[in-house]
């Protein structure tokens, strides 16, 4: 049986290596298949932000903003930001799993544009971020979130989040290369807690001590949350958008080259 099949295989002439774009898209397709086969992963990661939304809105919302509904309008865009940022860890987790499973060896031994496995994974992750954002937004809408700028504002806000999240994926890619187990990548994700909490996602920083206010002010997450709120409700400050872009460029410029160096380094 085997022999026959190998022989028919000879009809497949040696093919030309795929272009960089085609290889990247194929690996992006792989990421989508994983979402299709393991959809629960996606819902897993939205449970936490939804819990946060419910807790903050109904426990503290009234006290913080006068009414739970008023607070929800403030909180939800920031929660979407938080959801997407927490997902960036999974880029590192997925990568680490692939390395441990030997998949990267296979990819690396193929005649493809070498960064394709990483860029492809990032593409898939962007889709994953968008899906998670949609899930949280739908829950928000059900609870009474009403974006004043309508769907266009919401879409623009999510796009801005994707820009920043793809930059923030690079540090996790580095962690993914450095640690030995996917679980270790997860443990380092606690770093995201201060990053998202010391921002204005949950409360207006005006009541915080001055030193903390200055930390919040330089945290790019604050600007992303502010810009997202602005875009969704139609009161965006260009300054916040500019800061988000600048921060994305800086983070990528620092971490992407390190990540690529680690990728090329033999393991």
């Amino acid at each position: 049986m085997t022999e026959l099949a190998f022989r028919t295989a000879t009809t497949v002439a040696r093919i030309r290596p795929p272009s960089a774009l085609s290889a990247t898209l194929t690996l992006g397709w792989r990421a989508l298949l994983k979402i299709k086969h393991v959809p629960f992963q996606l819902f897993d990661v939205t449970v936490f932000p939804i819990m946060m939304t419910l807790m903050f809105t109904y426990l503290f919302g009234g006290a913080l903003a006068g009414s739970t509904q008023a607070y929800l309008q403030y909180l939800l865009p920031g929660i979407v930001v938080q959801t997407v940022l927490f997902l960036t860890v999974y880029t590192g987790v997925g990568l680490n799993t692939d390395i441990q499973k030997g998949l990267f060896d296979r990819f690396r031994s193929l005649p493809i544009w070498q960064p394709a496995p990483i860029v492809g994974a990032l593409l898939g992750d962007l889709f994953r971020y968008s899906l998670a954002a949609v899930v949280v937004l739908i829950v928000g809408l059900i609870l009474g979130f009403r974006p004043e700028a309508g769907p266009v504002g919401v879409v623009l806000a999510v796009l801005l989040m994707l820009v920043f999240a793809s930059a923030m994926s690079w540090p996790w890619i580095i962690v993914g290369f450095l640690v030995r187990q996917p679980e270790s990548v997860m443990t380092t994700s606690f770093l995201l807690f201060p990053m998202t909490f010391v921002s204005d996602i949950f409360v207006d920083p005006r009541t915080m001590p001055a030193w903390l206010q200055s930390v919040v002010a330089v945290n790019p997450v604050t600007h992303l949350a502010r810009a997202s709120r602005g875009l969704m409700h139609g009161s965006v400050q260009l300054f916040d958008i500019a800061v988000v872009f600048a921060a994305s460029v800086v983070v990528t410029a620092i971490f992407a080259p390190i990540a690529m160096r680690l990728y090329y380094k033999e393991r």
Binding site: P18, A23, R30, K34, H37
Partner: peptide
Amino acid sequence: FASVDEDLTGHENLVLVARLLGF
């Protein structure tokens, strides 16, 4: 150690490799 994607089906794994070879 088997270097196949556990989350994908057998068919998808092979299609993936074939695509990356330029099929």
